[in-house]
Design a binder for these strands. Structure first.
Length: 207
DNA sequence: ATCTAGATCGGCT
DNA sequence: GCCGATCTAGATG
């Protein structure tokens, strides 16, 4: 992605689908933030699907003030604060009235992302908390529309097709009790920007 | 009003 | 591998 390249936001209908399908489909697309100090871009390499009332691991297992956004229209950002210091960003899925969201867990830095400390750039957004820090995302973005600037998901183009071809793997969601274990974590096999490796390379269902 | 677990991370052992 | 940081939504009294 060239410095001045035009990036096309994905349309809202992209997000108005089954949550697990949207999660897999997001791999290879771009997360873009027109931040105060310039445009930051990352290619999505790891996500997790969280559904609604049938998914005990989801914040939307019951409707609460915090999770109401997940019951709203698709394509909006659900940002929450956790462990006293980290923000996590989700993309709301499904149609209005049906809860669902995809947690963005890792992106490969493509532009405008700075290294933190002595860590390699490749690891700067490897994990949901690091991702929001690297991209300049925080609680102010909760409820914002991800189909248009300043914060949006853009089409990954040909590079996306190359990245995902035969390389999508699935596994259990991170930090979720075994009782609700579901293979709803998706990523690019053996990619250097994953939050952590996928244990077994079970290939995910094809798109 | 108070309690507690948490979709985490970095540093240390 | 383990632990502490530092806050809050949600649950319970």
């Amino acid at each position: 992605v060239r410095a001045g390249a035009r990036l096309r936001p994905l349309p809202r209908r992209f997000f108005a689908r089954d949550t697990v399908t949207v999660a897999r489909s997001l791999l290879g697309h771009l997360l873009v933030h027109h931040a105060p100090r310039g445009r930051r871009v990352g290619r999505i390499v790891e996500v997790e699907a969280y559904r609604g009332p049938r998914d005990p691991a989801s914040h939307a297992y019951r409707p609460t003030p915090r999770s109401l956004i997940m019951y709203g229209p698709p394509g909006m950002a659900y940002v929450y604060f956790t462990y006293g210091m980290h923000f996590c960003v989700n993309v709301v899925t499904e149609t209005r009235g049906r809860a669902g969201a995809v947690l963005l867990r890792a992106v490969e830095p493509v532009g405008g992302i700075e290294v933190n400390g002595g860590a390699p750039l490749q690891r700067a957004a490897a994990g949901p908390g690091r991702l929001t820090r690297a991209m300049g995302i925080d609680g102010r973005h909760n409820g914002s529309d991800l189909t248009r600037p300043p914060l949006y998901i853009a089409d990954g183009g040909a590079a996306r097709r190359r990245m995902i071809r035969g390389r999508i793997v699935a596994g259990p969601r991170v930090g979720i009790a075994a009782a609700t274990r579901r293979p709803w974590r998706f990523g690019i096999a053996a990619h250097g920007s994953l939050s952590r490796p996928f244990a077994r390379s079970r290939r995910a269902a094809r798109l």
